[in-house]
Nucleic acid binder design. Sequence first.
DNA 1: ATGTCGTGATAGTCACGA
Length: 271
Amino acid sequence: MQLTVSTWNINSVRLRIDQVGRFLKERRPDILCLQETKCPNDKLPLKDLQAFGYPFVVHMGQKGYNGVAILSRYPFSETSVMEMCGRQDARHITVTLSREAKAAAGLTIHNFYVPAGGDIPDPDLNEKFRHKLDFMAEMRSWGSRAKPTAGPAILVGDLNVAPLEHDVWSHKQLLDVVSHTPVETEALEELRQEAEWIDAMRVLRPEPEKIYSWWSYRSPDWAAADKGRRLDHIWLSKGMKDTLRSIDVTRDTRGWERPSDHAPVTVVLEL
DNA sequence: ATGTCGTGATAGTCACGA
């Protein structure tokens, strides 16, 4: 069977519920992971999401900020959340697919929203940057301790780091910009390698191809300027490498009316 | 290159986070 998994920082699921529906209709993933839902659990437009063809929905949300959700055509046997950095701030949720998912049974999907980190890339001057580094350190120790890649697993999300030189429009100009500083890119690469996660995008589309999933709202002509960053990622456990068939960024959504500043990333696996 | 968004607390704008 083929399994299609998408990840999208939606920047308010209520404001853009119609865009979620349009994307699901056009791309038809089996599973969609959302970040920045920006709503409490009881305000999630659950009926709409289910009506799009996704009866199984889990959400860890809160008022105003953050929030992660997973929509699925297949049921879950388990779901849980981690309180990263001792905070209940809705930045992680995970599911394991049940036996009804057939060849995908037992597959675990982790959905993360890593802190953006503020503007100043110095943990002594900027508490938000410190939080971001602490968060990645905790992801690394989790990878070492919990062995999340021991079985079939996918880690997706807005990791808020563009790790490689060609994950940004200008490597030199962004070396001092939060999301591409060496301390961040090294931390992300180390935590990825700690659990031997595979960066699915770069397996099929290696450097030096430029690949982005985010374009700032502040760029007036985002498409022409194309000053993007690859902040959204799909990682596979090492045992799943041979299942990888395709991966893409749905850049079109960024051109929709009142868009999210992130575009969805979608992987197709043959299980 | 300090620009553009979304939410929430408020009552027309402003703070905050991104």
